[in-house]
Simulated assay, not measured.
Amino acid sequence: MNTTSSRVAIVTGGSRGIGRQTVERLAADGYAVVVNYAGNQAEADAAVAAVTEAGGQAIAVRADVGDEKAVAALFDAAEQAFGGIDVVVHAAGVMILAPVVDIDLDALDRMHRTNIRGTFVVDQQAARRVRDGGAIINFSTSVLGLALPGYAAYAATKGAVEAVTLILARELRGRDITVNAVAPGPTATDLFLDGKDEETIARMAAQPPLERLGTPADIAEVVAFLAGPGHWVNGQVIRANGGIV
């Protein structure tokens, strides 16, 4: 493509859910967007089509976020297509729920690979390549504060994400690059809704004072704010959950 864009964003997990909405939101703000996906090319192509049909620029690039060579190639593709990288949104994640006593350790390892190792791999490339004035945005979860039964393994991986986020922000001193994390509450995505009955969903929707589930668009607005020109929010975890405490 070899197009130079004024602002360029990579969104991991950009083919579905919050990642997909973030792709479209950033594109609406004028970003050229690299849509990273793990396996579903059709969904990634649909995200690219939505952006291009609205007059924006986007490409899709497949990469396992836990594979450092694949992620380096993802960043290479972004630089080759658009001339540089300004924002990295690491939205890719795996959530498998079970009590500690029952958790399948293979499932635990899978979450660790995507949620912890993936954050290190993506953030490492981002720290090396994001241009000054840019932003790195990771994803945590408001479950960390809620301590819901069944979420221990998932919440543990996201606790690691928060630690990496806060420390990386300080390691990038002098670079004019912000590093923050967004911690959604219950949000109406396939990842959240899968395996839950209507009663459970209704109960969780009633928890915030706003009395509804979040939407991917709600979370994408927070990402767009953190990606924007205001650079005084740094080294923070934004709990975007409608007021659940």
Rank of each mutant, 00 (worst) to 15 (best):
A38H: 14
I59L: 14
Y31A: 04
A46L: 02
A46R: 09
A49I: 02
E53F: 02
A42I: 06
G30I: 04
A44M: 02
A54C: 10
Y31N: 01
V48L: 08
N40W: 01
A47D: 07
I59P: 06
D29L: 03
E53N: 15
A38G: 08
A32V: 02
A50W: 11
E43D: 14
Q41W: 05
A50K: 07
V51S: 13
A49T: 13
Y31R: 01
D29H: 02
A49F: 01
A38S: 12
V51T: 12
G56D: 11
A44S: 09
A32H: 11
A38Q: 13
A44C: 05
V35N: 11
N40H: 09
A49N: 12
A32Q: 11
G56K: 08
A42E: 12
A54E: 05
Q57L: 06
A42T: 13
D29W: 04
G39Y: 15
A49L: 11
A42F: 07
G55R: 07
Q41S: 11
V34Y: 01
V48W: 03
V34G: 01
Y37H: 08
D45K: 07
A47S: 14
G56Q: 09
A50N: 08
A47Q: 09
V51M: 08
Q57W: 00
A58T: 07
A49P: 00
D45W: 06
T52L: 00
V35F: 04
D29G: 10
A47F: 12
A44T: 06
